[in-house]
Computed example of a mutant assay.
Amino acid sequence: MAESGRSTLPLPDYDHLPIGGLESRVRSLNAEEVEVLLTYEHEHADRLAVNELLSHRLDQLRSGARPTSGDPSALRPEQGGHRAGSPVTPATSPQPFGPPPHGTPDQRGKPKGDRT
Rank of each mutant, 00 (worst) to 15 (best):
T116L: 11
H42C: 09
E3Y: 12
P77T: 13
E52P: 01
P67G: 06
I19A: 11
Q79P: 00
R76L: 08
T92Y: 00
H82S: 12
E33H: 06
N51A: 10
A84F: 08
D13R: 04
S63K: 05
Y14K: 10
Y40P: 04
L53F: 09
L53G: 08
T8G: 12
G70P: 05
T68M: 10
H102A: 04
R83A: 11
T68P: 04
P67W: 10
S7G: 13
R62F: 01
R66T: 14
P67A: 10
L53Q: 09
G80F: 01
G81A: 11
T39L: 15
V50R: 13
V26M: 02
D15V: 05
E52N: 13
G98C: 00
V34L: 13
E41R: 02
T68Q: 13
G103T: 03
P90T: 02
L17K: 04
H102D: 09
V34D: 12
P67Q: 10
D106P: 00
R6A: 14
P87K: 04
G21Y: 03
R66E: 13
P12Q: 11
D46R: 14
E78A: 11
L54H: 12
A84H: 05
T39M: 14
A65V: 03
S55V: 07
P105I: 07
L11C: 06
A84E: 04
N30F: 03
E23Y: 08
H56V: 00
H16T: 11
R76M: 11
R115P: 02
G85K: 00
P101Y: 00
S55Q: 07
E52R: 11
D71W: 10
P10Y: 12
G103L: 03
H44I: 05
G70E: 10
E32Y: 10
D71N: 15
P96K: 06
R57F: 09
P101M: 00
E23F: 06
P67N: 08
Q79K: 03
S24W: 03
S4C: 15
Y14W: 06
E52C: 09
L17A: 14
S69F: 13
P111E: 08
R66H: 10
N51M: 09
Q60M: 11
S86F: 04
F97M: 03
P87S: 08
R76F: 08
S86V: 01
